[in-house]
């Protein structure tokens, strides 16, 4: 209970600091939302009027205080870029998509990388390990947008397993949405699978060399018995940490993959909001990403306690 309260306080402080930093950073960069919305042909009067309406003329602390007052009540205001559209409605269209994409890719990552990583460690130096080692190296070396393009070309344009750009909202048809998202999810998952496999393999192998393993063998345990009964629990601890980082990254929306596959998720919204100087939207997304990261780390802390009794005692 104490732990939860401590974590909650950390969460609040983190969010406050991050939101202020991103707010301040935005007022340093040139260009503002009024100018971007009105473009080349705007007259000075139109600009002045829109700036006043958006409150861009007010000093920074005042604007931040206004924003914070709204955010605390759960009101993130209206988008500067899309007149009359609330930030909440923009995000509520996109969050489910990004979360679905993240869940799909997580399933892929877990389903493939855990067995593969363990198998590589079990048969290290054998042909399977060597082959997977080559493949994972390749998967990590390809830049994500290029991987996305290759997948689009192969599965979309050549095999026609999906139609690039023909995305269906999950609320309209969940099955159609998932079958489209499978391909961007694959693009997100492939490099991560490669990383987790290598990480897990390394972690298991380094555990295998420790004294307790020799003891376990001398007690008459079989190879599998040692691996699953003794080694894996210890080997998983660093992998779980790594997994947490991956989850936080995916939940923030894979900007590049969303762009290449035309998936209307949070990542794409973040990029366009930054270039449109749409502060309210950027602030809300930054908060979401920060909160997701902190919460996942919290979950990992709890998980440690399950995996490792030593943490529980401390």
């Amino acid at each position: 209970m104490k732990l939860i309260i401590r974590k909650l306080i950390t969460l609040i402080i983190t969010l406050l600091v991050i939101s202020f930093l991103s707010f301040a950073a935005f007022s340093l960069i040139p260009g503002d939302a009024a100018l971007t919305r009105l473009g080349q042909d705007a007259t000075p009067q139109q600009l002045a009027a829109l700036r006043a309406e958006m409150g861009l003329d007010d000093p920074l602390p005042e604007r931040y205080a206004d924003w914070l007052a709204g955010a605390l009540r759960g009101d993130f205001g209206e988008s500067y870029r899309y007149e009359g559209t609330t930030v909440a409605s923009l995000l509520s269209q996109r969050l489910p998509v990004t979360v679905l994409l993240a869940v799909l890719s997580l399933i892929m990552i877990t389903a493939v990388s855990l067995p593969l990583g363990i198998a590589c460690a079990r048969y290290s130096g054998k042909w399977l390990d060597i082959l997977v080692n080559q493949l994972t190296q390749l998967a990590m070396a390809i830049p994500p947008f290029f991987l996305g393009m290759i997948l689009t070309y192969v599965f979309g344009l050549t095999l026609r397993w999906f139609q690039p750009g023909d995305f269906t909202q999950p609320s309209e048809d969940l099955a159609a949405c998932l079958s489209y998202l499978a391909f961007p999810a694959l693009a997100v998952a492939l490099p991560k699978i490669a990383m987790v496999v290598r990480f897990l393999r390394g972690s298991v192998l380094s555990e295998m060399g420790k004294d307790y393993v020799r003891t376990a063998f001398s007690k008459g345990n079989s190879e599998n018995g040692v691996l699953y009964g003794h080694v894996l629990g210890n080997a998983m601890i660093p992998v779980v940490t790594f997994f947490a980082m991956v989850i936080a990254e995916i939940l923030a929306g894979s900007i590049v993959v969303e762009q290449v596959f035309s998936v209307p998720g949070v990542g794409r919204l973040l990029i366009s909001s930054i270039s449109d100087r749409d502060y309210p939207v950027v602030q809300a997304i930054v908060l979401y990403v920060a909160a997701a990261t902190v919460l996942i780390n919290f979950a990992v802390d709890l998980l440690y306690q399950l995996l490792d009794p030593r943490v529980r005692e401390a």
Binding site: G156, P164, G165, D166, S262, S272
Partner: peptide, 19 residues
């Protein structure tokens, strides 16, 4: 009118017959 932020993606969607 479908908005596609990235020109290369738009071209792919054209080839796929989406636009």
């Amino acid at each position: 009118f479908k908005f596609i932020a990235d020109v290369d993606t738009a071209y792919m969607e054209l080839q796929a017959g989406t636009i």
